[in-house]
Design a binder for these strands. Structure first.
Lengths: 180, 180, 180, 180
DNA sequence: CATGAATGAGGATTCATTCAT
DNA sequence: GATGAATGAATCCTCATTCAT
């Protein structure tokens, strides 16, 4: 069917490579095109908007996040599942600077992105439910609020040093526990 | 000192008023000038860069922060001092969208800003030291890291609902305690 | 003659259908191609330029115009022949937004278009000659000038309401009569 | 009051000159800027949109049209008033290629333009009323329809020769008379 | 000092046309 | 012959900053 032409695939890959080389958050499509050695129009053909490109960049990261979320949902040890998932999610968000925007955006251009986000949320919700029951998470924290907290921690790490990641994650994990 | 001319002072005030009316973070100096009923040049004379204007906008907020920091340093109840200071700092940062940038910037244009930041840090450092001794804060958290955490929480509130503020603050306060 | 392949004919028809769906005057060949479910290249193969496509769209209208012109030339009642021909021509030009350009263009891409235009002009010239003799048309109005007047009336109707058509046609018919 | 700076006035004049040099109807503001020897921003400062520039170009012509309309309204000989006004209006529209768009546009950027258009219409309406009473104009033709007819005649002259102007005007004047 | 006109690089976006597949 | 990806000039418009008045 939709036989993706070899040259188109190569262009797409080049664009994604060029985009990855820039600080996400300020993607100038003209610059991306120049650095990819392609015409501007080609970039627009593949990604009609900046958000579409950001999403495409995030797809690979999202795929890994889906894996992690599934693994966490299936992991018998709730505490470990929670810590691992949040830790990995944080690490991925720090690696992929556009991921936060994709996760927070209410509108996804790609159906696959939407599907992955839904699956991630669903899997994490089940982890979260178990964690609440195990008194590892305050019952008054919603999944969305925890997502926002992770984004907050991501921000805290970004304005500081990468080495703060584990420490800040620990702070968060301790902070979301119910009061004793 | 330098006797500031009355009209110059009025211009300054008008500029600050106009700037406050806009969402910090996208200050268009032309727009500010127009809304202040002044020429662009006048704005540039008073504030040679966007950051200078952001700083000036932050001065008032910083003054309140100095007060709060002093009060916290003098407050005998360490726990209350810590919670109050962090809570108020968070509230101020949420009110004044440019404050985070000013607090994090290594270079201040105004000496008074530099001085206030130093005083705030010094006062909070003393609170923090007491809090560490009272086992209210992990000993491995530096003052800068805590500042970054507050900025992270600010971000978390911004991407969510204002009502999350107290909850997220509680999470942070609980999170920075030493493990039991 | 040249045996036209069935699929080529189908492509051609699809392109024409898609083009007819758009407001003539801004034919974006890419859009036409997409709506026709064909590649842009195919469109260019059939119609090497926008004008070629406009002409092709006009062919059907021109065929009807040829009929009308012949009928007018053969019609015994000169007054009726003139009024009918000009009225129908105006109606056709209003229907087919690209017709005016084709009629006015000195260069035709298709020989058939050139032939039809010649026949239309010849037939109308004979009507006109009779009309001049019957004192229905000023002798100082050339066939080209009358064509331009019809285009002017077309324009007048376009910038106003479709309902103005008959009224404006009447104005024109009255206006081209010799002074009394 | 609004003391217009000499340099600004010069820029404005240069822009208008450059714009007049181009075929109205496709004004590229960048080109106008280059030919005026000015920055693009300057052009945008003076004329925020193409229509604003078209209007400004038309102002002078409109002023002359106001004069003509007033003179016609005051002219005792109705027939001459009508013929002169329509003839001059046609001549002005042919001179100033943007005038038609300004006259037909429902939204004017400049209040002065709006005012002039209103005055022209009012003056012409009075001429028209007299002309209707003198049996020089069909009673079923509205002022707007006559305006459209003039635009149509303008178009007819444009696609043909300038020398056709008087002839086509005569056709129109004869055409709008009531049938005998 | 104040003014605001002028600058022009920068960024987004479109579309007619070509050409490798 | 059909395809549609690629091209990139062209266009629009904005805004931080300078400088003549």
């Amino acid at each position: 069917m939709a036989q993706i032409r070899a040259d188109a695939a190569r262009s797409r890959a080049r664009i994604l490579d060029a985009a990855r080389a820039r600080p996400s958050g300020d993607l100038r499509l003209n610059d991306v095109a120049r650095e990819a050695g392609l015409g501007v129009g080609t970039v627009y053909r593949h990604f009609p908007s900046v958000h579409a490109l950001t999403e495409a960049l995030a797809v690979e990261t999202l795929e890994r996040m889906v894996m992690i979320a599934r693994a966490a949902a299936e992991h018998p040890d709730t505490e470990s599942a929670l810590a691992t998932f949040l830790g990995e999610a944080l690490a991925l968000q720090l690696q992929d600077g556009g991921l936060q925007a994709v996760l927070l955006s209410p509108d996804d251009e790609e159906q696959s992105v939407r599907d992955m986000k839904i699956e991630i949320f669903a899997a994490f919700e089940s982890v979260l439910q178990r964690a609440r029951e195990a008194k590892l998470v305050r019952p008054d924290l919603s999944i969305v609020q925890i997502e926002h907290l992770v984004c907050g921690i991501e921000h805290a790490v970004r304005i500081g040093e990468p080495e703060d990641r584990q420490l800040f994650l620990d702070v968060m994990l301790a902070g979301i526990r119910p009061a004793v």
